[in-house]
Design a protein around this nucleic acid. Structure first.
Length: 345
RNA sequence: CCGCCCUUAGCUCAGACUGGUAGAGCAGUCGACUGUAGAUCGACUUGUCCCCCGUUCAAAUCGGGGAGGGCGGACCA
């Protein structure tokens, strides 16, 4: 694979890349540049995570050495979203779910390195770097960098600011050439690009995934159950949520159903060699088969494909995509019971 | 250590002065209309009024104690 192909793999289906030149340069210089993505083990993982995760398959195919950080300390630093006592259990659950998603996306989880935050964030070199950064960063700069990531409240805690600086530092600590995450992470990684060179580290390139629209229109909200599909949702639950989704005929904007197809279903189906089939009553023209997303969107915009026909097909496809992960999680019920005792135990 | 403020539906809050077993908006649920959903109408649901004790025929409301949260002051050898 040449540099152009590898770069294309790394950058496809993304929201933004900073900068493409830098990624090309990495591939020119080295056989296996490094990339990292971090997740703070807080609430249950959902389809948004899966969409972001699917991209790791592209990274691996492109020859990147991928590290996944399970940022346990971050999960508590962000307004104590995860109680301190549950960090271990939630980290275990996240790691298992992530392995499942990578597998379901058609990649080999063994080619990914998993790291816990507490494995290195309490060591002296990291701590010293952090303290130096704390001394050099203004409150307003840190607030701005983390504003899309850290929970915003009337009474913000210091932890949210430390969280932000730690994440910037993680890029260097994990020796990542490329920082990857949802576009909401942009502020933090721009801070990293700005500050890491001052501390003697390389400036990371960044790849940002799009954030999917919520099913009820507008942004996906972690706290709104009907706005997203959970990894543990069964076929019926997925169908119910997709059927209830905001999906105006012919409109692409804010259309979560189409976005799920574009960024999750089609990439995964391509990997698995499956086709997207829309079963449709003869009355409306009979069944349709699609090999790529563009054709779906074209038919949807033209009116050829009606939302009422698309929805059941999309629901079935999404179920098929998440099924392996769901089964894996249900086979190990203690993972969820330990991680979210108030809900499952 | 001292003082002041806050705590009522899933969320934001009203009600407290002048005790009479609780309300609005949003959210949610269900119908109507659409070959989906949304929008729009129509209907409906929701409570340990932070906890304990007391006063009273009667306490979200008054008194005392406590918990949690916030703000300020003081202390600064």
């Amino acid at each position: 694979m040449d540099t152009a192909e590898r770069t294309e793999l790394v950058t496809r289906f993304t929201e933004e890349v900073v900068e493409v030149d830098e990624i090309e340069a990495l591939f020119e210089e080295r056989e296996n540049p490094t990339a990292y993505i971090g997740y703070a083990p807080t609430g249950e993982m959902h389809i948004g995570h899966f969409t972001t995760m699917r991209k790791l398959a592209d990274f691996i195919d492109a020859g990147l050495d991928v590290t996944v950080l399970v940022a346990d300390l971050h999960a508590h630093l962000d307004d104590a979203k995860s109680p301190f006592e549950l960090l271990e259990a939630r980290s275990a659950y996240y790691e298992a779910a992530i392995v499942g998603m990578i597998e379901a996306a058609g990649a080999d989880p063994d080619s990914v390195t998993f790291v816990r935050g507490t494995e290195y964030q309490l060591e002296e070199p990291y701590t010293l770097d952090l303290y130096r950064m704390l001394a050099e960063t203004t409150l307003s700069r840190a607030k701005r960098a983390g504003s899309e990531v850290v929970r915003q409240s009337e009474n913000p805690k210091l932890g949210g600011l430390v969280y932000t600086l730690m994440q910037a530092l993680d890029v260097a600590a994990l020796d990542a050439d490329i920082a990857y995450g949802g576009i909401d992470q942009r502020g933090i990684y721009m801070l990293a690009r700005e500050q890491l060179p001052d501390s003697g580290y390389d400036k990371p390139a960044c790849v940002f995934a799009p954030l999917l629209s919520g099913l009820s229109g507008g942004k996906m909200s972690a706290s709104e159950a009907s706005s997203k599909v959970n990894l543990t949702d069964d076929d019926d639950a997925v169908e119910e949520k997709i059927n209830g989704a905001y999906c105006p005929a012919g409109e692409v904007e804010d259309n979560g159903v189409l976005e799920y197809l574009r960024f999750l279903v089609f990439p995964v189906f391509e990997e698995r060699g499956e086709q997207f089939v829309v079963e449709r009553p003869e009355e409306y023209g009979g069944d349709l088969v699609y090999d790529d997303y563009e054709a779906v969107e074209e038919d949807f915009v033209s009116g050829e494909l009606h939302p009422a026909d698309l929805k059941p097909a999309a629901a079935a496809a999404i179920s098929a995509v998440i099924a392996p992960v769901r089964e894996q999680l249900l086979d190990n019920p203690e993972l969820l019971e330990d991680a979210y005792p108030e809900k499952y135990a």
